[in-house]
Simulated assay, not measured.
Amino acid sequence: MKTRKVSIGAVEIGGGLPLVLLAGPCVIESEKAVMTEAERLKAVCRQAGIPLVFKSSYDKANRTSLSSFRGPGIRQGLKVLQRVKKTFGIPVLSDVHSADEAKAAGEVLDCLQIPAFLCRQTDILVAAARTKKAINIKKGQFLAPWNMDEVIKKIVSSGNRKILLTERGVSFGYNNLVVDFRSLAIMRQLGYPVIFDATHSVQLPGGRGTSSGGEKKYVAALSRAAVAFGCDGLFLEVHQRPEKALCDGPNMLSLSELPRLLETVREIGRLADGARKTNE
């Protein structure tokens, strides 16, 4: 089944189009850091020939510990993302954690992201949909892929069909996630582009007691597998120095590692697309 095309600013995803990258640091640590990372990401993606949607969160409301760094908040965070958008001409994406945030977020963001833990919260989904912007829904770690059909219906009820579905692993025992790649194919059958979140799929939720751990050594391998299996885009959280990151450092990819990975997945995507067309 061919997925519909969804526009995020000037970037189109789905419908057999080339692979798209949704990437950026987990959270806005400072305006200077975000501007530097956005500039580098744009250059890397231009070199790889892969369209970019820049991602960074203005507030990480679902941290493990009360004392965890959350970001600058919606007001300042949206100002930073607006500057990224204006300066580099790339679309921007961030998480929305409540229905009250949706209107303000929709005035700046090209894509509103619904965090995995909130993917069934009707009021948030409907409020986000009413902005008429693209909506990226992270599939909950507790949901089967076919259950996302009911989530889609909540968005569509507001007349918005600009929907992306993101796989980010499923809970497997305590402090662990695994990826069932069948999920990509199952969600694609729902008719919307499917994104694979390689960095959160290697997360160990709460694995460090007061914070989450991660096994970023598997990010590249899972990215390659997802593109070969069939997805419309990759979601990667990247950082200049993940070991110094204020949030999700253990599962984030270093910016220096990104060019090689993008070169590899671009080639895998080309071969996989050719094989699919041959078999159609």
Rank of each mutant, 00 (worst) to 15 (best):
M1D: 07
I8V: 15
I8Q: 11
V11G: 06
E12H: 08
E12Y: 01
G16P: 09
G16Q: 07
L17V: 00
L19N: 02
C26T: 12
K32T: 15
A33D: 13
R40L: 08
V44K: 00
V44I: 15
Q47M: 06
A48Y: 09
L52T: 02
V53P: 06
F54V: 12
S56G: 03
S57G: 13
N62M: 06
T64Y: 06
S65H: 11
G71D: 05
P72K: 10
K79C: 07
Q82F: 00
A102G: 14
V108R: 13
V108G: 10
I114Q: 03
P115A: 12
F117H: 15
F117L: 14
L118I: 11
R120S: 01
T122Y: 04
T122W: 06
D123L: 02
D123S: 12
A127P: 08
N136Q: 02
F142S: 10
L143S: 05
A144N: 07
N147H: 12
N147D: 13
D149I: 07
E150Y: 12
I152V: 14
S157L: 05
G159D: 08
I163T: 01
L164T: 09
F181Y: 12
S183V: 04
I186V: 15
I186E: 07
P193F: 01
D197W: 02
A198T: 09
T199F: 02
T199Q: 05
H200S: 06
S201M: 04
S201I: 04
L204I: 14
L204D: 08
G213N: 15
G213H: 14
G214N: 13
Y218Q: 05
Y218S: 02
V219E: 06
A220E: 10
F229S: 13
G230V: 05
D232Q: 13
L234Y: 07
F235T: 07
E237R: 03
R241F: 08
R241A: 09
R241N: 10
R241D: 10
P242S: 05
P250L: 07
L255H: 03
L255S: 04
S256N: 11
L258F: 07
L258K: 03
P259H: 01
L261F: 05
L261Y: 03
T264Q: 12
G269L: 08
R270P: 00
